[in-house]
Design a protein around this nucleic acid. Structure first.
Lengths: 358, 358
DNA sequence: TTGTAGGCGTTATCAT
DNA sequence: ATGATAACGCCTACAA
């Protein structure tokens, strides 16, 4: 049975002290006698009193909560969606450093529409906000950043009013593509992108082109196909490529899920991986190790992105002035079997550089 | 640059109306002229005003946030931890129905200690609470339930002061074990449990025993091994069993991750799965499909658990009185290759019953 | 060590 | 349709 909530006044009366003293007992570790503390705590326990976080936040001007906004894809599949696993890890990473700092994380996801108002509601309930693009438009983000510290997880324009943290998508993509070209000597290598408007997908395609250019080859203006970052999308993309282009030497997928989807299609077409068509992914999700052949991919520090984003929020709360910064986390080439390498019992890795600027 | 936050007073002055009117514009859709609305909205925009969620919550006596407490395992590995994937899905499920209802979710995880105070802090900031056992002790949960609606995700005693929702762990485990015994005729089948104190693990072991009893066999009092719900733990458990017991006909793992870890060990020992040793898991995580052989397992509706838990919280907020209820979600036997079945192109499934009581 | 009292920024009730 | 004005539950100088 849920009792009517009691307040600090009742606790104060019951323990024979003032509300100020109750407040002190609840949040300081000093400034009152041991006996007073006992009385207050007992009264609180008897009444089942839980201090109102909202009242406390209002009076203290600090909520102790950081918000995290991302876009949902289960409900809003197709457009602008990020990999569910990506979101999972970001949430947990954020939660981890927040909890360690004694704060909590408020999460909410944007659906097909209404992102702006959702963001405003959340913004009013937190001390700072991390938004995983592409949950919100550049315009909405800029508006939020006027009234509250905002950190965006994504590559963003240099001129902006908020901090960013992101993974080195471009570098990682260039590295894995370079591996395919330089180590394996594949000639015909193509790229399968995720959603067209995904910033991550674009960065990865840019890295793909970088590697081609570095090898002195012509780079296509557009990806060979788009696969929506899903297994079925990747499978469909693979079929399309096979039909219109024939079997390439290698295909660089924008993420692991698409690559995994493609593996099955290749098998159905009696094409051997990596013998006939080599394949790589991006992210290094759990299944990448388990799939057969095991998937060569680029590890992205998804949890760490969430962690660093929250740290950046805290830093910005502590110092609201100063130039906006950006932190780019290194990615990590993880070599397994699908690229054509053999006998790599333990995955070899090659890290891109981490960079920070402000 | 973060401006000093403006308040409803400034917006009211700037737009030449009272704070009451501003408030109405922000939350009603009626009760003011179109022109007034324009003026207010413009003033708000110019000032970059974001209504204070805490002040609003205090005045309205409703926060619009539901809390979710779980136990962390990355930081607090070993004891009482749940599968990370389980938590991921529960979080997303909770978030999904909360967002649809216009609410947000506040998440926090308990570490090795301090669970009680964390829970109290969270409780003060939300309208209701869902706690994924074993994040909190029975005692702490009971205390919380005195002052706020609480829903626990786990099997729990019949006499309690809160609602529960859980998956039919016991039934699912009995079903998969029965499949091994009845369909395949395996004689020597053993069970590998998760953490000793995990309620889910216990339920699954109980289901395992149910199936043995139903087949007229003797059931062991304890699991053959404990694997901590992790891949490495499952691998170690498999090694231990092989060493002390020899190769059984089949082993029922308390979750998928342990089963996947065991697959590799079996391979190292030149034992064929399912030829020599059949294996089953529990949860149906993504890798279960990708691993080789594909894993026969029991699908648990993890996301739905989160969804139903939040719905139950809403229901309890709407009606604080009345008997506490419990909802048991059906689980789903998902047959693939590791149990010895062949040619199941599409996994066959067999659902346990869903039950609800109050 | 303890008490008094004025905010904190909204919402909601009554008027007008 | 709009305006005054009490709450809402706690924190924090400022006093004592």
């Amino acid at each position: 049975m849920v009792r009517p909530k009691s307040t600090i006044y009742e606790v104060a009366r019951r323990s024979g002290v003032s509300t100020a003293t109750v407040s002190r007992v609840m949040q300081s570790s000093t400034g009152f006698s041991a006996e007073t503390k006992q009385r207050v705590l007992r009264a609180a326990g008897e009444l089942g009193w839980v201090p109102s976080g909202t009242a406390r936040a209002l009076a203290a001007r600090r909520v102790g909560v950081v918000g995290l906004i991302f876009s949902d894809l289960a409900t809003d599949a197709g457009v602008d969606s990020e990999s569910p696993l990506f979101v999972h890890h970001v949430i947990r990473g954020a939660e981890r450093v927040a909890t360690l700092a004694g704060e909590a994380v408020l999460i909410a996801s944007t659906r097909s529409s209404g992102g702006r108002e959702l963001a405003l509601r959340v913004a009013g309930q937190v001390d700072g906000l991390v938004v995983a693009a592409p949950a919100l438009s550049e315009r909405d983000i800029a508006e939020l950043a006027r009234s509250i510290p905002v950190v965006v997880i994504a590559a963003r324009p240099a001129r902006r009013t908020y901090d960013i943290v992101c993974a080195d998508n471009r570098g990682g993509s260039a590295t894995v593509t370079g591996h395919l070209i330089d180590e394996h000597g594949y000639r015909d290598v193509v790229f399968v992108a995720g959603p067209k408007r995904s910033p991550d997908s674009r960065e990865r395609f840019a890295g793909f082109r970088d590697a081609l250019a570095a090898a002195g080859r012509d780079a296509p203006d557009a990806p060979a196909a788009h696969g929506n970052f899903t297994e079925t999308g990747g499978a469909q993309a693979m079929r399309d490529i096979l039909a219109s282009h024939g079997a390439p030497d290698a295909v660089v997928f924008g993420n692991d899920e698409m690559a995994i989807g493609a593996l099955a299609v290749l098998r159905q077409h009696k094409l051997r991986t990596p013998g006939d068509v080599a394949v790589t992914g991006f992210d290094d999700i759990a299944s990448a190790r388990h799939v057969s052949p095991s998937l060569t991919t680029v590890r992205q520090p998804m949890g760490q992105l969430g962690e660093e984003a929250v740290r950046a929020v805290f830093a910005r709360i502590a110092d609201p002035t100063g130039r906006r910064g950006s932190l780019t986390l290194a990615t990590d080439l993880t070599i397994r079997r699908s690229c054509g390498c053999r006998g790599a019992r333990r995955a070899q890795t090659q890290k891109t550089a981490e960079s920070r600027s402000s």
